[in-house]
C-alpha cells in the first residue's frame, strides 16, 4: 500500500492505496465519484477525462499515486451553488448528449479546450480538439454546437471560470 494525498473537487483526500490503482478507480471506488466513466482499455475514448492541475487528462491512464499532491477536478466539481457550469448548461441546451455515458468526459474536455483555445471556437477547431473523446450516440453534431455555445457562455462568466 502507498499513501496518496490529493485535492479532489476542493477537498483534501488521503488514502492508502494499492499502487496499481488507477486514478479513475480511486475516484469511482474510493471516493464514489461515479460521474467519471470508463469506456475502453486503450486510452482512446475519453469517458474518464478529469482535470489534473487544471489540465484535461485521461484518468484511466494515470495511477492514483502519480496524482499525489495534485489537484483533481471531476464532473461533480464544476457546478457551483446548484447552478450548472456554462458548459454543462450548453450541453443540455443544445442536446449535446443522449445516453450520457461520454458526457462527463466530453464536458471536462470541452472546458479544457476553452481554457487552451479561448472562447471563440470555430467548428474545425472543436472537431480537431475532440480527437480524444468518442461518442457513439450524437454523431457529434450537437456536441460541436454545445461546445461552441458553452465556450461563449464561459466568456460571460469569468468568475465561475476562475473558481474551477
Amino acid at each position: 500500500m502507498t499513501t496518496v494525498s490529493l485535492t479532489v473537487n476542493g477537498q483534501s483526500v488521503t488514502a492508502d492505496v494499492d499502487p496499481r490503482t488507477l486514478l479513475v478507480q480511486f475516484l469511482r471506488d474510493n471516493l464514489r465519484l461515479t460521474g467519471t466513466h470508463v469506456g475502453c482499455d486503450t486510452s482512446q475514448c475519453g469517458a474518464c477525462v478529469v482535470h489534473l492541475n487544471g489540465q484535461a487528462v485521461k484518468s484511466c491512464t494515470v495511477l492514483a499515486v502519480q496524482a499525489n499532491a495534485n489537484i483533481v477536478t471531476t464532473i461533480e466539481g464544476i457546478s457551483q451553488g446548484g447552478e450548472l457550469h456554462p458548459m454543462q448548461a450548453a450541453f443540455r441546451e443544445h442536446h449535446g448528449l443522449q445516453c450520457g455515458y461520454c458526457t462527463p468526459g466530453m464536458i471536462m474536455a470541452a472546458i479544457d479546450i476553452v481554457n487552451r483555445k479561448g472562447n471563440a471556437l470555430d467548428e474545425q477547431t472543436i472537431r480537431t480538439e475532440l480527437e480524444g473523446n468518442l461518442c457513439r450516440c450524437t454523431g457529434y453534431h450537437n456536441i460541436v454546437k454545445a461546445v461552441a455555445a458553452g465556450a461563449q457562455a464561459m466568456a460571460q462568466t469569468p468568475l465561475r471560470q476562475a473558481a474551477e
Binding site: 489534473l52 485521461k58 491512464t61 480524444g132
Partner: peptide, 9 residues
C-alpha cells in the same frame, strides 16, 4: 501527437 489529454501527460 495523441490527443489533447495525452499531450498533457
Amino acid at each position: 501527437v495523441g490527443d489533447p489529454h495525452v499531450r498533457h501527460r
